[in-house]
Design a protein around this nucleic acid. Structure first.
Lengths: 329, 329
DNA sequence: CTGAAAGCGCTAACAC
DNA sequence: GTGTTAGCGCTTTCAG
């Protein structure tokens, strides 16, 4: 098997403490001993047993990332960035998929014993107030669906949605639909509010039939919603979708009815997936700074775990990426 | 803090051994004791400390999944399925991103001490023979770029590529390009071989200028490759791309030159990403059974870790999904 | 069937 | 500066 601290100590002719000191870079070690230990370390190929170290230190070396599904590009991209950010703090990331269901989210939280992870990053969609009895420090990505005392990292969703709809209005669109309303999702409510404000400031009417709910935010849901909009007596001339997948589905449905984007229908998405840069037409989208979100979330948790800092909310920047789905090339 | 075995034992008035027996479902425990222990378990909300358990058992409870990048849809989808499959074997999954570089892959392997994970699933792109001195049982997804004694799970890449190109030939295409050749990637070599065989069996010539290499397999690489093909004196009438991202990029580049897909140019991809179902036009693609790959890989590792089984190779099924990029609707 | 006790590999008092 | 030693929480002989 692998060498232990004791093996190294024996080989170097010193005690485990000295070896431990060298390995952890503590205090001063007599140069002579240091050299001998380093040679022994090299000779044995010693690698610390993280499990034992963490058991002793009372930490695990892991953080959990709880998200709906890795097959959703936004979360896949985010997960990659969280893993990279966690490395800077010597954390490994454990990914739990909830599939956006309450049961899935509860079971993910339940599996999150304090023995498994030091902290958690959550992207909940269905959790309720009672569920937030977390055994470890946590940070929410996105919005508080309910009012609960947990740190949060994310963009200003109202302002971002407003910017998207303003863009459509500035292009002369008057009958602007929204896809993605959802009764319990905090993020959906805020994006709807941004949509509402942009209409109001341009003195455009808020038309109920133009706001289409979506239970899920997959491409198929966007396509279905778009079809229902195209079936209206007066279809919209533009549509703001609450994420890029909905927008991709909407554009697909439009194409199937020979509705041209952007000439007949302008489309804006949200998330700025890589996919959206290469779609035909490419998709105008609200672009949250995902790297900033990932880094802020991990850094915040690190502060909380290390120094027991208080709750905090971090607002990260966003921008609007204008592409062919609103402005023909 | 949280209750330990000792706390539970004290409360139930028994020894830790008895509690441990109950928790682990071992042997027979006197009904009376069992009841008392169960009550104490309930009262304290006891949750075993995985770190301590694993330290004792000499296992970690984790497997590593080493892949290029989560922002690549194929790997994101696969990762989701591996996580689900690992749950069935009480394993948590640790994802390491290599970004497809040799340095990244080496550092991922190095961090894989036997103390961190029980086993590993690898999707290497650049590793060399010497690198395969793994400290834990491992399984390769995709192909052996080099000849090393490691288990492998994946589809028959030659047959799959051949099926894709046969499909193009059956549609009457004669001048079929290939995008994605790569000097060191085993998978690329096999797909190229399938392409070559399909041409040969139809007595079509193998034309060097129609085979375009791609250093990376991102959308931008597909677009660049397609542009070079469209610049040829006689451009191809069909193109087989070694993954869907290349194909999406190729279709985008074709559209920018007003080349119509599939009328002027038929396109086939590989991987069957969800994205490809909703692109315009939707993309014909070779569809590996990703769930089967994930399950086979995890199950194989479980057998090796538990019973020290020998190396084995598992071949998983695939199918060809025909869509609008080869057959107009 | 159950209890006592050893020890997985590591860190951190506490002595020297 | 360095050695000795006591645990972190758990599983597991080994007695009884």
């Amino acid at each position: 098997m692998l060498a232990t601290l004791k093996d190294v100590a024996r080989l170097a002719g010193v005690s485990v403490k000295t070896v431990s000191n060298v390995v952890n870079g503590y205090s001063f070690v007599k140069p002579d001993n240091r050299r001998r230990v380093e040679e022994a370390l090299e000779a044995t190929g010693y690698r610390p047993n993280l499990g034992a170290r963490n058991l002793r230190r009372g930490r695990t070396g892991f953080i959990a990332l709880v998200l709906p599904e890795l097959s959703i590009p936004y979360f896949a991209e985010l997960a990659g960035l969280v893993i990279a950010a966690a490395q800077d703090h010597e954390w490994n990331v454990l990914i739990e998929q909830t599939f956006g269901t309450l049961a899935g989210e509860r079971s993910a939280l339940a599996s999150l014993g304090p023995h498994l992870v030091d902290a958690a990053i959550l992207s909940p969609e269905a959790l309720q107030v009672d569920d937030f009895q977390l055994p470890v420090p946590a940070v929410l990505l996105g919005e508080h669906a309910v009012d609960v005392p947990i740190s949060r990292v994310g963009i200003d969703n109202v302002a971002a949605a407003q910017a998207a709809v303003r863009h459509l209005i500035s292009l002369g669109h008057q009958r602007i639909a929204a896809i993605g309303a959802h009764p319990h999702r905090g993020t959906a409510a805020l994006r709807l509010e941004g949509y509402r404000r942009a209409l109001a400031e341009a003195s455009l009417p808020f038309v109920d039939e133009l706001v289409v709910p979506a239970l899920n935010y997959h491409r198929a849901d966007g396509a279905a919603a778009m079809r229902s909009l195209l079936d209206l007596r007066t279809p919209p001339d533009a549509v703001f979708c609450f994420n890029d997948l909905l927008a991709i589905g909407a554009m697909r449905a439009a194409g199937e009815r020979f509705v041209r984007v952007p000439q007949d229908l302008a489309v804006v998405g949200f998330d700025n997936n890589e996919e959206s840069v290469y779609s035909s037409p490419s998709l105008t989208s609200v672009a949250p700074d995902k790297a900033a979100i990932a880094q802020a979330a991990v850094a915040l948790l690190h502060r909380r775990v290390e120094s027991g800092d208080a709750l905090e909310n971090v607002e990260t920047p966003f921008s609007l990426q204008v592409r062919e789905s609103t402005v023909a090339r």
